[in-house]
Every structure is written in C-alpha cells, then in structure tokens.
Amino acid sequence: PDDEWKERLREAEEKNNWKLFEELARKAGVSEEKIEEWKRRWS
C-alpha cells in the first residue's frame, strides 16, 4: 500500500495538482509539518 500512495503522489506532482497531492498525503498519514515543508519547497 505504501508504494501505491507514493505512485499517486508522483502522479499528482507531475500534473502539478497540489490539492490532490495534499489530500493523498493527509490520507497517507503525512504530518502537516511535512506537508507545509513540501509546499514551501514546491512553490
């Protein structure tokens, strides 16, 4: 299951679909801290 969400995150990233990325990350149990960090790195 871990690989599956990583794959989906990669797809979201490729499409630059931040909303989807964020949603998937939350569902995968990624901390808000980590998500914010990704946001900063991404923008």
Results as ranks from 00 to 15, higher is better:
28 A>W: 09
42 W>A: 05
42 W>E: 02
40 R>E: 12
7 E>I: 08
8 R>P: 09
40 R>Y: 09
6 K>H: 13
26 R>I: 08
4 E>R: 07
20 L>E: 14
31 S>K: 04
10 R>Q: 11
11 E>Y: 04
30 V>H: 08
40 R>I: 11
20 L>H: 09
39 K>F: 07
35 I>N: 00
20 L>N: 07
11 E>K: 03
36 E>L: 12
10 R>M: 10
30 V>M: 15
24 L>W: 15
27 K>V: 08
13 E>C: 15
10 R>G: 07
36 E>V: 06
30 V>S: 01
11 E>I: 03
2 D>C: 15
3 D>V: 08
35 I>W: 03
33 E>P: 03
19 K>E: 13
26 R>Q: 05
25 A>E: 00
28 A>Q: 05
19 K>V: 12
40 R>A: 14
40 R>P: 02
13 E>M: 15
25 A>Q: 02
12 A>K: 02
5 W>I: 05
14 E>I: 13
18 W>T: 01
31 S>F: 01
12 A>Q: 03
2 D>G: 10
14 E>H: 09
15 K>A: 14
19 K>G: 09
13 E>N: 10
5 W>L: 11
11 E>H: 03
20 L>F: 08
36 E>P: 00
26 R>P: 00
7 E>A: 08
35 I>A: 00
8 R>Q: 13
9 L>S: 02
22 E>G: 01
29 G>V: 00
11 E>N: 03
30 V>R: 00
29 G>F: 01
13 E>L: 15
32 E>F: 04
31 S>P: 12
29 G>I: 00
3 D>Q: 11
24 L>Q: 05
43 S>C: 04
25 A>V: 07
37 E>P: 00
21 F>Y: 04
30 V>Y: 14
39 K>R: 13
5 W>Q: 02
5 W>S: 02
41 R>A: 14
26 R>W: 02
31 S>N: 06
15 K>M: 14
16 N>W: 08
16 N>I: 05
11 E>V: 04
22 E>N: 02
22 E>F: 10
30 V>P: 00
2 D>W: 14
5 W>E: 04
10 R>K: 13
26 R>E: 02
27 K>P: 00
4 E>L: 11
40 R>F: 07
36 E>W: 07
36 E>H: 06
21 F>H: 01
2 D>S: 12
7 E>L: 07
21 F>D: 00
25 A>C: 10
2 D>R: 08
29 G>S: 01
27 K>C: 07
39 K>P: 00
38 W>E: 06
13 E>G: 12
28 A>R: 04
34 K>I: 13
25 A>M: 10
21 F>M: 04
9 L>F: 13
32 E>I: 05
1 P>K: 10
35 I>Q: 00
6 K>F: 15
40 R>M: 12
21 F>L: 06
30 V>D: 00
5 W>P: 01
38 W>Y: 11
32 E>H: 05
41 R>Y: 13
41 R>P: 02
9 L>V: 03
37 E>I: 04
23 E>M: 08
7 E>P: 01
34 K>D: 12
24 L>A: 10
12 A>Y: 08
14 E>V: 08
33 E>A: 11
24 L>M: 09
35 I>D: 00
13 E>Y: 15
39 K>I: 09
22 E>I: 09
27 K>F: 09
26 R>C: 10
14 E>R: 12
17 N>M: 10
18 W>N: 00
19 K>Y: 11
23 E>L: 06
34 K>Q: 15
14 E>Q: 10
28 A>P: 00
4 E>Y: 15
36 E>A: 13
30 V>K: 01
10 R>W: 11
34 K>R: 10
38 W>S: 03
12 A>L: 11
3 D>R: 06
10 R>I: 08
3 D>L: 08
3 D>N: 10
42 W>K: 04
5 W>K: 01
22 E>R: 02
1 P>L: 14
31 S>A: 10
13 E>T: 13
3 D>M: 08
4 E>W: 14
17 N>L: 06
26 R>N: 02
32 E>S: 06
29 G>P: 00
19 K>W: 10
4 E>F: 14
33 E>S: 09
39 K>V: 05
24 L>V: 11
7 E>V: 07
27 K>G: 08
16 N>Y: 06
29 G>N: 04
40 R>N: 13
34 K>S: 08
33 E>K: 07
4 E>A: 08
33 E>T: 07
13 E>I: 15
28 A>M: 12
7 E>G: 04
32 E>A: 09
14 E>Y: 13
18 W>V: 03
7 E>T: 05
5 W>C: 03
7 E>R: 08
42 W>S: 03
